[in-house]
């Protein structure tokens, strides 16, 4: 077993890991905004809002992320007939990851909002608040607390799934490893290091999520 190679590949792999984190952070934060808006649409009584939102969620949860990446990366320029810019694959990766995680986060928010007792919105509405005010000042602040743990899980899942963007030649952690393997013909020492780096990252995130969860549970943040 060539540990020497494992060690010497670390700098390159970390370079890739930074891109992995960047992709994941951008995808999940845009996904959170998309998810929040889509969850509102999903819960609306108006069909022209709730139906598109349901279709969006079904599509992005019901098809493989790998296919979505190829569809957007290669398919979009063709069907929309535009000249892909140089960094198109990078942009396409972020779009695909954001839309994909947005679909899952839509469901997270929907469940979080629906878990708030109906009496809360009844109390707010009976005081004369509009539906929007009730959502903004009464329901969402309570829902956000309950949504933190599943959002953390989504972040971890996205961090791992972001390895799929290597098919669009984005040199994140996995592809950085693949390149070294291609050069050295030594898959095990490199891929084991890739796996360890993913593990360290997900471990840190899950500890952080646990910590925030406990802080919220202790009620010092309301």
């Amino acid at each position: 077993m060539n540990w020497q190679l494992s060690i010497s590949s670390i700098p390159d792999l970390l370079q890739g890991a930074i891109l992995t984190i960047e992709l994941t952070a951008v995808a999940v934060s845009s996904g959170t905004i998309i998810g929040l808006l889509m969850a509102m649409c999903r819960l609306s009584k108006r069909k022209f809002l709730s139906v598109p939102s349901a279709v969006y969620v079904d599509f992005f949860r019901g098809t493989p992320l790998l296919v979505q990446l190829l569809l957007i990366g290669y398919g979009a320029p063709q069907v929309l007939n535009f000249q892909a810019p140089d960094n198109w694959f990078y942009i396409a990766s972020i779009i695909a990851l954001a839309l994909n995680s947005g679909a899952y986060i839509t469901e997270i928010f929907r469940a979080g909002i629906q878990s708030i007792d109906r009496g809360q919105s009844e109390a707010a509405r009976s005081l004369g608040m509009s539906q929007t005010q009730s959502m903004l000042y009464v329901i969402l602040p309570q829902a956000v607390k309950r949504v933190i743990p599943p959002l953390g899980n989504e972040f971890i899942a996205m961090l791992k799934d972001s390895s799929l963007v290597s098919v669009l030649a984005i040199q994140e952690l996995l592809l950085s490893g693949k390149i070294i393997v291609g050069r050295t013909y030594q898959p095990f020492p490199v891929y084991i290091m890739v796996a360890l780096i993913y593990l360290v990252m997900t471990f840190i995130i899950s500890r952080f999520v646990n910590y925030t969860e406990r802080r919220f549970a202790k009620n010092d943040i309301r």
Binding site: D117, G119, Q120, E122, A123, L127, S130, P141
Partner: peptide
């Protein structure tokens, strides 16, 4: 309806206070 509800207070069996405030 929001204008009417301003003028009509309601008290519930289960209080329904906002727990985060």
């Amino acid at each position: 309806i929001n204008m009417i509800r301003r003028e009509v207070g309601m008290v519930f069996q289960r209080f329904n206070l906002f727990p985060h405030k």
